[in-house]
Design a protein around this nucleic acid. Sequence first.
DNA 1: ATCGGGCTTCCCATCGTGGGAAGGTCAAGG
DNA 2: CCTTGACCTTCCCACGATGGGAAGCCCGAT
Lengths: 129, 129
Amino acid sequence: MNIGEAAKASGVNAKMIRHYESIGIMPKANRTDSGYRVYADTDVHILTFVRRARGLGFSMKEIKKLIGLWRNRSRASGEVKTLAQAHISALDIKIKELQAMRDTLKHLSRNCHGDNRPDCPILENLAEK
Amino acid sequence: MNIGEAAKASGVNAKMIRHYESIGIMPKANRTDSGYRVYADTDVHILTFVRRARGLGFSMKEIKKLIGLWRNRSRASGEVKTLAQAHISALDIKIKELQAMRDTLKHLSRNCHGDNRPDCPILENLAEK
DNA sequence: ATCGGGCTTCCCATCGTGGGAAGGTCAAGG
DNA sequence: CCTTGACCTTCCCACGATGGGAAGCCCGAT
């Protein structure tokens, strides 16, 4: 499999596959005589794993650890769970931050008549110290 | 006021003030003979506005527009409201994405015993195509 | 032999923030 | 008057993840 085929099979585009190799997420791919990267099914599995982990919002650093645990058959599931729960906490914090922004903004927006007049509680609020 | 004093007064650090000037958010500051930037209260007001708008998650691009509306006394509040509501929608989308991640992860985590055994539904899920 | 498409590397951009180096300036105290 | 320390200046680099694009090589089909 060359990189384009691996991209199709994994759902990770070629550019990203090279990038993942450069940052050590993917092992250095074998090459043909002419320098083309060659992939096997196991590589596609890793790429798919990365794609799905990204979809859950894990950072590349976390994914690196997850892959390590995944490949280690004698891992303790507790380690994975700890990682996952730390990430859940981080997500919760971000969600709350965004909700606070949205709620504040919704409140201000409700009080803005939104017509041709210049008075605007949104701007007034932003201008407050 | 020099940049450090403006930073203290506005809550925006000096590095960021220079950055905002360089990207056209802040007007080019007047300088002393020796090259030090000089700020007035009006500049501090703008910086405070930027800080608060960032706190509500607006991008610099949006903030540029907001500042334009803010300084324009004949603005229509409708324009501000439209901008705000677009941002609220964007926040809602992001919140939902993060919540979906968190919910999936919570579900997987609940089913992971998290002990010394290697079986781990979290890893199994990530490994699925 | 040629041509289109795929591969390679390398550099640049995003967005907002910050670190740090090298050098100039200012005010206070000896 | 000179030193010292704190502040200022510009410039370059970094983060994290992704993508665009250029220049050049390779492969398979016509």
